[in-house]
Simulated assay, not measured.
Amino acid sequence: MPRARTSPARSAASHAALILYTFIALAPILLIVMNSVKSRAAIFGSPMLPPTPHTFDLIGYTTVLSEGSFGTYFANSLIVTLVSLAGTIIFGAMAAFALSEYRFKLNPLTGLYMAIGIMIPIRLGTVGILEMMSKADLVNTRTALILVYTAQGLPLAIFILAEFMRTLSADLKNAGRVDGLSEYRIFFRLVMPLLRPAMATVAVFTMIPIWNDLWFPLILAPGESSKTVTLGSQVFIGQFVTDWNSVLAALTLGILPVVALYLLFSKSLIRGLTAGAVK
């Protein structure tokens, strides 16, 4: 049967809706970036207007890059986020492969246990986590944050990847076993390449909470050498006076990795969502 053609009016409406949704999503980011290059008076006097030659001012970026240790904060956030993502994806994929491939008596209960980890926030165990890190002498280290964020992201990663793995063909894995491949080679050579859309989905949903988190850096790593971008930006917020130019500049610089990740994984993210990775 011939496909129904989309009318020009409907196509125009779809494009208009897409533009509107994009503007709504990007408006807060554009507002922050726009005000980060304006003088303090212009931020409060005309926050919705773009900068002009009279209001353009880079004092916020100058302050952020010259005062404090923003480069260290940025590097800490980047290291913690990337290592946590790698651990979450690798260990989550291994656990998901075991749950989806092997049948054992505790398989349903193990899957339920992982699902409960999604519903119960890890922050409820903050006191216990702090005591564990203190006894292990990991307070004020990036290792403490990496361990916590990896544990935080594993339940969701296992849930998404296990559901995606169940849709993969069993004939491919059985053919590998017939050829004499070990389970590790089947996992890394045959299964992992097919998980790229699902892994991109996990990366996007896991990276943003890690990068924007303030709670655990404040509790576990408040030292100057281990601060993250989100926590480091708080040095410009005082009890009585707030340097809004520096705060907006720090937020703008902190947004860049999130935008870069989205642009890098956008296609794989859409493929992962449409392939049923989160059903």
Rank of each mutant, 00 (worst) to 15 (best):
G111W: 08
A12D: 05
N140I: 01
A27M: 04
F187A: 00
M165I: 12
M132L: 15
V64E: 05
R3V: 08
E163W: 09
A98F: 04
I255E: 02
I79P: 00
E163A: 12
D137L: 06
T242R: 04
A9R: 12
G92N: 00
I219L: 12
A42I: 15
V139I: 15
V278P: 01
V235I: 14
V259Y: 10
V241A: 12
S84M: 05
K267E: 12
V148Y: 01
V33R: 01
P209H: 07
D243A: 11
A157D: 08
D137K: 08
G180V: 10
L130S: 11
A12R: 14
R10I: 02
G87Q: 04
G176R: 08
V80R: 11
L154F: 07
M199F: 07
S169Q: 11
P155E: 08
P121E: 06
V148E: 07
P197G: 03
L106V: 03
A25W: 02
F240V: 15
V278G: 06
N245A: 08
F236Q: 07
L218P: 10
L263E: 04
I90N: 06
K279Q: 15
S182T: 14
Y102K: 09
G153M: 03
A115W: 04
T143E: 01
N174M: 12
A162M: 15
I219V: 10
V178W: 02
I255H: 03
L49K: 07
F56M: 09
V148W: 01
L106H: 14
I158C: 04
P257G: 06
K227P: 13
P193D: 06
P108V: 02
P197T: 05
E131F: 08
R185E: 05
F265W: 01
T55A: 10
G68Q: 09
F104E: 01
H54W: 05
I19Y: 02
A42S: 15
L161D: 06
N140A: 11
I146T: 01
P47C: 11
F74I: 08
L26T: 03
V83K: 10
G60M: 02
M207R: 03
L124G: 13
F240S: 07
T252G: 10
P222N: 06
